[in-house]
Amino acid sequence: MPYYTILFYIFAIAIIASAVIVVTAKNIIYSAVSLFITLFFIAGLYVLLNADFIAITQIMVYIGGILVLLIFGIMLTSKITEVELTTSNLSAVPAIIFTVGITTIIIFVILTTKWNTKPPAVMTETISQIGKLMLTTYLLPFEIASIVLLVALIGSAMYSRKIK
């Protein structure tokens, strides 16, 4: 399947390149826009893996929610009128050495482990299966997740207002 291969490599190169821009850009707004591109291509990767519902959720929640929240945070915490929106890195060289070491170990483990894989199953209509699982097997975690979201909402609203 050559189209699948070509699409995977396009997505992979775009994800890694924009993630590198996220972690190295001097301007914070550039980092936010690159994070947008990264999350969008990760959603494309989910479509390649037959997870259409997760791809849509990724676009709606991450790009529509978290990224807008992050940009709000950047705008509220940077003195736009005085200083340019730049940032710098702390102790970059030890961080690079540590990170490259960890990533090399992980990739070595991935390549040497004998994974218990099977030929990829043909998945159809994952949305109905996810809906059934969400109301049968995963009913309790689903309810707990909704309570966690409510508590996080109330807590962040309480915590971020000015205390008089």
Binding site: V22, T99, I106
Partner: peptide, 15 residues
Amino acid sequence: AILFGLGLYAMISRR
């Protein structure tokens, strides 16, 4: 794994 390494680098070294 590469994406994890990049995120770890951002967590360690960004100000």
